[in-house]
Design a protein around this nucleic acid. Sequence first.
DNA 1: AGAAATCTGTGATGGAGATCACCAAGTTAG
DNA 2: CTAACTTGGTGATCTCCATCACAGATTTCT
Lengths: 237, 237
Amino acid sequence: MPPAPTGRFHRDCQQCELRMRGMFCNLNAETLLNYESIGTQSAYRKGVKLFEEETPCTGVFVLCTGRVKLSCTSREGKTLLLRIAVPGDVLGLGAVISGSRYEVTAETLEPTSLKSIRRDEFLAFLNRYGDASLRSAQALSKEYRSAFFDARRLALSDSAAGRLAGVLLDWGKAASIGKAEMRFAMALTHEELANLIGTSRETVTRVLGRFKKENLIRINGSSVLIVNSSKLEQMAA
Amino acid sequence: MPPAPTGRFHRDCQQCELRMRGMFCNLNAETLLNYESIGTQSAYRKGVKLFEEETPCTGVFVLCTGRVKLSCTSREGKTLLLRIAVPGDVLGLGAVISGSRYEVTAETLEPTSLKSIRRDEFLAFLNRYGDASLRSAQALSKEYRSAFFDARRLALSDSAAGRLAGVLLDWGKAASIGKAEMRFAMALTHEELANLIGTSRETVTRVLGRFKKENLIRINGSSVLIVNSSKLEQMAA
DNA sequence: AGAAATCTGTGATGGAGATCACCAAGTTAG
DNA sequence: CTAACTTGGTGATCTCCATCACAGATTTCT
């Protein structure tokens, strides 16, 4: 069962600033009207698990504010960090559409507000509104692509340094569109970074140190500046 | 551009034995009728590349007969084998829906017949028919899940033996639903298996040898019998 | 059938990185 | 304001497995 929310409020999707970006805000008028009538809006504290891997799927969560960590864990306690969801993302979509259990664990990283829609209610909505189905397909496709590129990175880049270079470049590029320098705020600890690229915490520390010493990157607190992107690109392969 | 087909024929989807299994055969009457009117049916020889990673996406391919290998390769020549597509599968769906380049390479493993549908034609079809959109979302979700589980396996199972145990169990289970013993036909070479689980050919040979010696599996030609599934399950973790 | 190519099996060697064991520096909590 | 965690940094060791190098076995081609 979903955890108890710590608050509740309604927000008009017509006015939502995510209207053009979020998956379920940019729908045609009639669909949007119906979308607003389903599900419930609620708020959660930091550190709450919205759902856990292997548990039966109850529905989807559309993130409005706050960030949510998506990860999964093996029986031995090894963790794979998949991504940090941001406002506009839809969580649990794959499980709902494929009719299976949640495959990941979703945990809030900060106070969060979101809209939760029960499985059957959401599927009925998709059945009735074709444009919403298409949007879901696109959202899934986006998620699929990112999972695919993660798998690709894990499999094809044999060194931990190469994989780390890859994610640094990804973030640098994403944060510096149209800007001169590639700088971004590192939101993860070394431990989380290690879980993301499938290595150990110590290796992340060492490799980052090496990158700094070789003047490929520069780090100030949480701010990371990419100095030599071509060299990183080259080792990311 | 798509390769030239070696043959061409039409097959009535109403009569298709994949009707209930294939993603685009099990549609309602009106949608199915339109589906039949779009795209072209054609045949290919063994060893033909339907499309290659990084190339602009031209459309989707719905596989009717034959098997197709989906893989991708790093600049250094390391290959990741994703899966072997079988009749009923839709290839290139993710690229078409997300409007990006093909992310994998698709190569026929045997003589193959399939239906190809141009990108714009296919998207127009999805836009008009909501049930087809929903099916696409489901197909993508299935692909997404399998990519996810691959990534999970690569990241969370640290030993090559563990990952190999995992895929053997997956195949054994899939092939032995409702049967007493877990037996299946191994369709891949050691090299391909190695590419699938991110290890070297030699390691696959050695680990399979170890599994045989420890009486966990038995191999006769291409037939693999899983003898001690719980032990394998345990090391797959 | 015979040749060419691909696939399988096995030893030896080296290196990347997991793991363990600390310590220092920040952060949170009581 | 300490105490208790969590994070970051670094050395030493040890294990798994990638890689190289062949040799036999099978399949495919002509």
